[in-house]
Amino acid sequence: MSIENKMIRFKILEDFKAEMAVVDSVAAFRRALIEVKTVMGFDYVALTQHADIFEGVGTVIRVHDYPALWALQFDGRRMGRTDPVHRASHTQAQPFLWTEISNMIQMRREDWAVFANAEDCGIGDGYTVPVHVPGESNGSVSFAMAVGRPIPYEMLAIAPQIALHAFDAARRLWKMRPAPLAMPILTAAQIRCLTWSMLGKSDWEISQIEKCQEVTVKKHAKDALARYGVHKRTLLITRTLLDGTLSLGDLAAG
């Protein structure tokens, strides 16, 4: 690869990073994503969370420019969670070519049919970047080619960074997590009690661990619920995992 080509790739990435840092609407985001995939030499792009679009209308991140016929089939068969590309992306953090999928997951007859249908709709080879954010639906960014057109392999060097910057910008636009300054703040005692609760401890058990009265544990839980404006501890735990107050690592630590 020549120095000139490396500089071209570097400029594409830096320009896109700058644009994603300030993009302020879904429409502008979509235009920028489609523009960058075109500049990179790809024919199609799809940035999506792996969820049933009908179960989360308005809240599931999905931006693509795949052929309309394929999108119609994809939605009609409710393939958000069963698509083989999506399933393969759940098995690793590294990007992969679609030609590698049969070595990543057990391919079923219907999976091969998915690729055949995609080809009938004009979609050929592709390259997918998995995106996994704890507490949120798994996602991915796929760059694809029209049938018979080769993948621009020289652009795979920047495709993962392009994908991650795009997904972070999408999460911001779709408001997947609250702004840090808008997060409720729990006391250290509330966080400790909530962590033990997440680990399955009863209020009495927590009181023994924390060397306090059971009524104190219940008060910590009640106050934490009030700060988040929720009424169930399961929802409280979910909210604290989403805003980073707690982490899945706390489960392992317990």
Score class of each variant (00 low, 15 high):
T216P: 13
H165L: 00
V133S: 07
Q161F: 12
K222N: 09
E154Q: 09
I209F: 00
V133G: 08
I162M: 04
L181T: 12
S137T: 13
M145E: 05
V129A: 01
I151Y: 00
P178L: 06
A159N: 06
L225I: 02
F167L: 03
S142P: 03
T195Y: 00
G139H: 03
S137C: 07
I162D: 06
V129S: 08
R172I: 15
P180G: 01
R192M: 07
D203V: 01
S207R: 01
F143D: 02
A182Q: 13
I185W: 02
V133Q: 03
L199T: 02
V131S: 03
R177A: 12
R171S: 15
Y153A: 09
M198Y: 13
P134F: 10
I206K: 08
W196F: 14
H220I: 02
I185F: 11
L164Y: 13
I158F: 07
L164W: 09
G139A: 03
L173E: 05
C212T: 01
V215W: 03
G139W: 00
D203L: 01
L164Q: 13
V129F: 00
Q208I: 10
I162L: 08
P178T: 09
A226P: 12
I191Y: 07
P130S: 09
T187M: 12
Q213K: 11
I162R: 11
L225E: 14
E205Y: 02
Y153T: 11
R227G: 05
K211W: 03
P152H: 06
F167Y: 13
V141F: 10
E205N: 08
R171N: 15
D168Y: 06
S202I: 07
A169S: 14
I185Y: 10
Q208W: 01
L186H: 08
P160W: 00
Q213T: 11
P178V: 07
A169V: 09
A157P: 06
Y127A: 00
R171I: 09
K201Y: 07
M155K: 01
D223A: 08
S140E: 05
A182K: 13
L164H: 14
I209G: 06
S142Q: 06
